[in-house]
Amino acid sequence: MGPFNVLAYIIRRLIGAVLMLLLVSLVTFGIFFWMPKLAGQTTDQIAASYVGKAPTAEAIAATKERLHLDQPVVLQYGHYLKGIVAGQDFKAGPEVDHCPAPCLGYSFRTSQPVLPQLIDRAPATLSLAAGAALLWLVSGVTIGVLSALRRGSFLDRAAMVIALGGVSLPIYFTGLLSLAIFSYNLKIFPGGGSYRPFSEDPLHWFESLVLPWVTLAFLYAAMYARLTRAGMLETLGEDYIRTARAKGLPEKTVITKHALRSSLTPILTVFGLDLGLLLGGAVLTENTFSIPGLGQLAIAAINGGDLPVVLGVTLLAATFVVLLNLVVDVLYAAIDPRVRLG
């Protein structure tokens, strides 16, 4: 397994990723542009629903032409793909708007290109997800390891009960509860909707994100603590742990160097998936704390029938998941020498 094989593997996986994204876009596109046709709507009706309030006949006609709604759905999809790969020109009256590649189209509501909106919203989601991920990874794994080592102890039982609570309580409950206590009552942290980008005011950015981080991390930390505990317990029963002890290694070395490393690999897989999903928008958390991230954008777009934006967010989320999955698999091979990429 030389570097060439690793490269070949990554290329093959990237090709697979592109196919996967194609499929995602096809399905999403189909749901929004093909299903209405199946349901018997005329192209005029469809176009009308995209124009907004009080559609005029000209506006409908213009929209129809602009979106190629009179063409077969397959062609429409082709235009969409072409936009992503090569960019697209949109006729708006006498002017021609060029939307450079990767072009995800124009928002129906704001008439702005979709991509800049996504880029505008991404930092908030990224801040939220990355901070929470760090928090839950560290705390979840630590609690899980301690629980496994003191199996059956008070600490173990307490941790697992709390973990059960964390897994079962929904974000909007824990989120609102924490807001009520720490923001409105104790006034330690600012309330919802106070998010400022890091570039504007780092301190405020941090303060405003503490509660969302903790709330989101609580849910995941609980899950990771249970996962780590189970993984640790399994690893501690492995023959090579017995060997490590038989060599006379101090217990601390046995745990950190031999047991922990093996039990972390399955966690890595889950972590990649979870983070990927969150990067596409932590919908509940963003809504609860009014953080202007991708999740909020998606909700707003769905509510307003802003299809290009919905499609854009979906594609972006899928891209995150697929890419992180690839990263995880490559990391996996780096950690476990038995895993061969191929």
Partner: peptide, 17 residues
């Protein structure tokens, strides 16, 4: 150091990583 042991299954008895 003073007492050592060899186990049955050498594959599972060595750390794979």
């Amino acid at each position: 150091r003073q007492m050592a042991m060899i186990f049955q299954d050498p594959l599972s008895s060595m750390h794979p990583f």
